[in-house]
C-alpha cells in the first residue's frame, strides 16, 4: 500500500490532485449557490476544441485549451449579462460548437492520437513534472484571489441588484470568476479528464450543503470533500487499476449519497 505512494507518477498526481481538488471545490460553492451546475460541462468541453487544435497545429494543447475555455467562459458571461438569455442557453450553444470544432480539427489532423484520450478521460501517467509546477504556481494564486473576493461573490450571488447599489463591481468580478474557473478546468483536465471534470465543480459543495447552513462551513466542508475524494479516488484507482478520473468522481458521488443519507437520518 505504501509502495503506491513511492511511485513517481503517483506522487505527482497526488500533489497536483490535492491542489486542483481544493480549487475546484472552492469554485463549486459559487457554482451551486449561483445555480451554474452545467457551466463546468460547457467550459471543459470547449477546452476540447482547444486541445484538438493544439494537436493539429503541434502547439502545447494546454495553451490552446486555455484560450478556448477562457473565450467560451467570457462568452457565456457576456450572453448572460446582455440579459436576454440565461447561462444555460449559452452553455448549450458553445458546448456543442466547441465539440464540433474539436471533431473537425481531429479529422483534419488525420492521425489517431492516443494522447487525446488522456485529455478526454484523464490520465495520471501523463502528468509531467512541468504540469505539477504549473499547478503549484497557478492554483494557490487563483485560490487566494477567489478567497479575497469571497464576500463580493457571496453578495452578488445572493442579491445582485443590491450588491450593485452597494458598489460591488458586479460585472468585473463575475467575468474574473468565469475566467479563473476556465483556467482551473484546463489544469484539471489531465487529471480528471474533459468528460468528468465538471463533477468536481458541483459535487463537493452539493454534498457539503447537506451538512451545513453556513457559508463558511460550506466552503470548508466542500474543500474537504473535494480533497478527500481526490486522494481516495487516486489511491483506489491505482490499487484496483481503474481509471483515475472516473474513480475520483465516483468516490465524490458516494460522499454525496452519504450526505443525503446523513440528512435523512438526522432529520434536518
Amino acid at each position: 500500500m505504501i509502495e503506491i505512494f513511492q511511485l513517481g507518477f503517483m506522487q505527482r498526481a497526488l500533489v497536483a490532485g490535492i491542489f486542483i481538488a481544493a480549487l475546484c471545490a472552492l469554485f463549486s460553492v459559487f457554482v451551486v449557490l449561483k445555480r451554474l451546475s452545467f457551466i463546468g460541462v460547457g467550459i471543459s468541453h470547449s477546452a476540447f476544441g482547444g486541445v484538438a487544435l493544439g494537436f493539429l497545429l503541434g502547439i502545447n494543447p494546454t495553451i490552446t485549451a486555455i484560450l478556448f475555455a477562457g473565450a467560451t467562459a467570457l462568452l457565456i458571461g457576456f450572453v448572460n449579462r446582455q440579459g436576454r438569455l440565461h447561462e444555460d442557453t449559452a452553455i448549450g450553444i458553445f458546448f456543442a460548437l466547441n465539440m464540433a470544432l474539436g471533431i473537425l480539427f481531429i479529422g483534419l489532423s488525420r492521425s489517431y492520437n492516443v494522447d487525446l484520450f488522456g485529455y478526454l478521460f484523464g490520465n495520471i501517467l501523463a502528468i509531467t513534472r512541468g504540469d505539477v509546477v504549473l499547478v503549484l504556481i497557478v492554483a494557490p494564486v487563483i485560490f487566494a484571489v477567489i478567497l479575497s473576493l469571497f464576500k463580493e461573490l457571496l453578495f452578488l450571488s445572493f442579491d445582485e441588484e443590491v450588491a450593485r447599489v452597494s458598489g460591488v463591481a458586479v460585472s468585473p468580478v463575475y467575468y474574473f470568476f468565469l475566467l479563473a474557473m476556465a483556467v482551473t478546468i484546463v489544469i484539471a483536465i489531465k487529471l480528471i479528464g474533459i468528460v468528468l471534470v465538471s463533477a468536481l465543480l458541483v459535487i463537493p459543495a452539493a454534498a457539503a450543503r447537506q451538512f451545513t447552513t453556513n457559508y463558511r462551513g460550506l466552503a470548508l466542508c466542500s474543500v474537504g470533500i473535494g480533497v478527500v475524494s481526490t486522494v481516495a479516488g487516486l489511491f483506489l484507482s491505482c490499487w484496483l487499476n481503474l481509471a483515475s478520473g472516473a474513480t475520483i468522481v465516483l468516490f465524490a458521488g458516494v460522499l454525496f449519497c452519504v450526505s443525503l443519507l446523513y440528512v435523512r437520518l438526522r432529520g434536518i
Binding site: F158, E161, A163, S166, G167, N214, L218
Partner: peptide
Amino acid sequence: YVPQRAFADLAFPVTVFDVVMMGRYP
C-alpha cells in the same frame, strides 16, 4: 435600498447577521 421582489432563494446558506453585514459593504 430595499428592492421590491420577494426574496427568492430560501436555501441560501447565510444567517440574518451575514445578510445585514452585506449591507455594510460600502
